[in-house]
Design a protein around this nucleic acid. Structure first.
Length: 764
RNA sequence: GCCGAAGUGGUGGAAUGGUAUACACGCAUGACUUAAAAUCAUGUCCCGUAAGGGAUGAGGGUUCGAGUCCCUCCUUCGGCACCA
């Protein structure tokens, strides 16, 4: 994943992922692959802009400065990036295509204008998507958020909810990321039921996953946002009280409103009743803020006997609690599990799962309900009232409505402004530039106004992996009209980044990719079939690295003091790649010592030596290091190399060819020192263009092994034996050993388990 | 509450169902040195002089054999959450 060039610079945790891809890319290259290992800058959006505002610099200037800092830091570490393919999402030649993709979404009807109240950050002064919240606060600045009705652009990601969920099964991704996405999408199967409202010519639809409990429904609840209130509340005899309740509930923030255990409040809609379609029973209707307007239908049937929230509400307002599923004691608490239906008309006696099927069928047959699916995922609020983003390429015309900017006129460049601070008015700073805003309508030539909202920070990263093509083409981007596909058959082979993107970038990018797939612009269903997450590198004090704790380790200092190779080897060796681990300076010294040892062992080379003793170990090492890199198990790859180096040291001599083979294994991890030694030993070409060593299966095989003898599963003896023995031969050898016969002690041998070339277990 | 991941020495961790604690850090002792650093050597889970016994969060189970598979529970981390 390309970094966000923040003003803080990189710390040793950020570069862990880059070291891993570098090792992986170098290894693949040595194995003959044509590797594209790119770097770029995802630099539009709030963090860059907030930094710019705080430091009173134009975001364009500060971004360029931050990019330069990042690039310098990275260049210290010896990455094999192809800098000729460096990209920057703020480059007009880049965001031209971000805008182009937006227009495809628009033309497909997947981008629409909405006036619904959305999340508003009063500090960042912009609308936000649900994904931009963390613990109910603005993820960027930590401010409490508000709800604010305003005009906005929204992307219909919910149309792709099912595919985003289903296709997770195609992905070789960490379980936790898949799990997060699954929870975020929040698919829930159930039934929609129509309740006719008596005296009014309207129907309230409710969503439930527990249609089997409907005979226990004793009232209905609608959210304060429910459309039933849209036409005014004069139909209710207590209209004033209802109005008061609705207004009050809008003032409460979403977090307070949805906090579990919060006292439930509500008001009955007097003068109307809802009719349960199953038994024609008339039940009261309440408005209560424990029902959310944006989920399901914004209305629920309340079954206090079998739902905890309804139970609490019913207790408080003295509403009847009627059992319809056997199994609990509803006088004490709601019974929410499945069971056998009671007092449920024709459905009495069925088990819940069966009842749900039959009752949903009944709803359909009688045209009073249907099977439905609901999602927690909401459409993506895509406009920001900020300066530092891609202008949304649309023009508003009084006559023609919303008109897309013609493709030939892209990019719509972000204009230079004097004041780039957010206005807070619900308009972006771009609205204050009349000669940018006022344009001709591309359709009718009449007066038009540019859309002044910009795209969110996630736009540019939603397709950056597509800005590469076969190098033979020599072009930096492909015109989608001329080229069928933007990418090869397999897409990105390896994608590495942090877990914080689980429900943001990694959802958005899959959504855009699927849209492009439907447009036949990409050939794969998914952008990244393989993903790895680097674990956090924490400070030496086991706290998260932060200025606040003064525990940030800057790679520049580590490189200056201990060398880039030490840093690289240590970060790969410190533990499993995906695990969070604390930095340890003394631990890092161990990696430094290992590299010094490798250097020293040059002196142990005996050019005349044909070192048979090491041959088997070397080939095992070649095998293990290659497999470990492929599987992102860098820590064990390094420990395997350490074992080899220790053995060379123990023996005191090594043949030149063996030493060189070993150097190649180390080269992806420690590119500088291996190159130095490689040349020292007389090579003109680089070690990094060498072919990766091939291990020899026959050489991996040992001639003898340490046979472990167990008696009844306990280790009682071990001795060296030649490989390839048969079970009876081994047993003969074993039964001659005094240690073994002592334990057998005259008992008859009941069973013998023989694991070839490893272990024998004698059961007595 | 639901879902997921994980619990192994003083520390980071290793272990296709087959010798638990590889590798590294730290520590101790020794060698080298006037001394220190660096380097090298030896040792370092617990009990026991030893033979041996016991330890992979706790308790059960499957198996000739379990850190690994199954069940129950505890703890930590992550996601979702008045989501009907």
């Amino acid at each position: 994943m390309f970094p966000y060039p923040s003003g803080e610079g990189l710390h040793v945790g950020h570069i862990k992922a880059y070291i891993a891809t570098d090792v992986y890319a170098r290894h693949k290259k040595m194995n003959g692959f044509n590797v594209l290992h790119p770097m770029g800058w995802d630099s539009f959006g709030l963090p860059a802009e907030n930094y710019a505002i705080k430091n009173k610099i134009n975001p364009k200037v500060s971004t360029a400065k931050n990019v330069a800092t990042f690039k310098k830091q990275l260049s210290n570490i010896g990455f094999n990036y192809d800098w000729s393919r460096e990209i920057n999402t703020t480059d007009p030649e880049y965001y031209k295509w971000t805008q182009w993709i937006f227009l495809q979404l628009f033309k497909k009807g997947l981008a629409y204008e909405s006036y619904e109240p959305i999340i508003w950050c009063p500090s960042c002064k912009t609308g936000l998507a649900l994904e931009d919240l963390e613990d109910g606060k603005c993820e960027r600045c930590g401010s409490d958020i508000e709800k604010r009705p305003m005009r906005q652009w929204v992307l219909a990601i919910t149309k792709y909810a099912d595919r985003l969920l289903e296709d997770l099964s195609l992905l070789d991704w960490p379980a936790s990321i898949k799990e997060s996405q699954k929870n975020w999408i929040g698919r829930s199967e159930g039934s929609e039921i129509d309740f006719k409202v008596k005296k009014l010519d309207l129907t309230i639809k409710v969503f439930t996953t527990r249609v089997d409990t409907i005979f226990g429904a004793t009232y209905l609840v609608v959210a304060p946002e429910h459309p039933i209130f849209a036409a005014g509340n004069l139909i209710f005899s207590n209209a004033e009280e209802i109005n008061k309740y609705i207004i009050a509930s809008k003032k409460i923030s979403d977090i307070d409103r949805t906090a579990e255990g919060k006292d439930k409040t509500g008001v009955e809609l007097l003068g109307v009743k809802a009719i349960n379609p199953f038994n024609n029973e008339e039940i009261p209707i309440f408005v209560a803020d424990y029902v959310l307007g944006h989920y399901g239908t914004g209305a629920v049937m309340a079954v206090p006997a079998h739902d905890t929230r309804d139970w609490e509400f019913a207790k408080k307002y003295n509403l009847p609690i009627r059992e319809s599923v056997k199994g609990g004691d509803i006088s004490v608490e709601a019974f929410t599990e499945d069971g056998i239906l009671v007092d449920s008309g024709d459905f009495t006696g069925l088990v819940s799962s069966e009842a749900r099927k039959k009752m949903t069928e009944w709803l359909k047959k009688n045209k009073v309900g249907r099977k439905t699916v609901n999602y927690k995922l909401q459409d993506w609020v895509f406009s920001r009232q900020r300066y530092w983003g891609e202008p949304i390429p649309l023009i508003h015309c009084d006559k023609c409505g919303v008109v897309p900017v013609p493709e030939k006129d892209l990019p719509v460049k972000l204009p230079e402004v004097k004041s780039y601070e957010p206005t807070g008015t619900g308009e972006s700073p771009l609205a204050g530039i009349p000669n940018w805003v006022n344009v001709k309508c591309p359709k009718c030539g009449g007066k038009g106004k540019r859309e002044t909202n910009t795209m969110p920070q996630w736009a540019g990263s939603s397709w950056y992996y597509l800005r590469y093509i076969d190098p033979k083409n020599k072009k930096m981007f492909v015109d989608p009209k001329k080229e069928k596909y933007w990418m090869g058959k397999n897409g990105v082979d390896m994608y590495v980044g942090g877990t914080e993107h689980a429900t943001r970038h990694l959802v958005y990018v899959r959504f855009w990719h699927k849209v492009l797939f439907d447009l036949k612009l990409v050939s794969t269903k998914e952008p990244f079939y393989r993903l790895a997450n680097q674990g956090l590198v924490m400070g030496e004090d086991k706290r998260k690295m932060s200025k606040r704790w003064g525990n940030v380790v800057n790679p520049d200092n580590v490189v200056a003091d201990f060398g880039a190779d030490t840093l690289r080897v240590y970060e790969m060796f410190m533990g499993p790649f995906e695990q969070a681990i604390s930095w340890s300076t003394s631990g890092m010294m161990g990696s430094r010592r290992f590299l010094e040892k490798v250097w020293r062992l040059m002196e142990s080379i005996d050019p005349k030596l044909k070192n048979k003793e090491l041959e088997s170990l070397l080939h095992k090492t070649i095998k293990k290091v290659g497999e470990d890199i492929e599987n992102f198990r860098f820590n064990t790859a390094i420990s395997t190399m350490m074992i080899f180096a220790n053995e060379v040291e123990r023996l005191g001599t090594v043949s030149k060819s063996q030493y060189l083979e070993f150097l190649k294994l180390l080269a992806p991890f420690a590119p500088h020192i291996t190159e130095e030694i490689w040349h020292e030993l007389g090579h003109k070409k680089s070690v990094h263009v060498e072919k990766w060593s091939k291990y020899n299966k026959s050489k991996v095989k040992e001639k003898s092994f340490i046979l472990v003898v167990q008696v009844n599963g306990k280790v009682r003896d071990q001795f060296e034996a030649p490989c390839g023995l048969k079970e009876n031969e081994v047993l003969d050898l074993t039964l001659k050993r005094e240690n073994v016969t002592n334990y057998i002690n005259g008992n008859s041998v009941k069973r013998v388990i023989w694991v070839p070339d490893k272990l024998i277990n004698i059961v007595i």
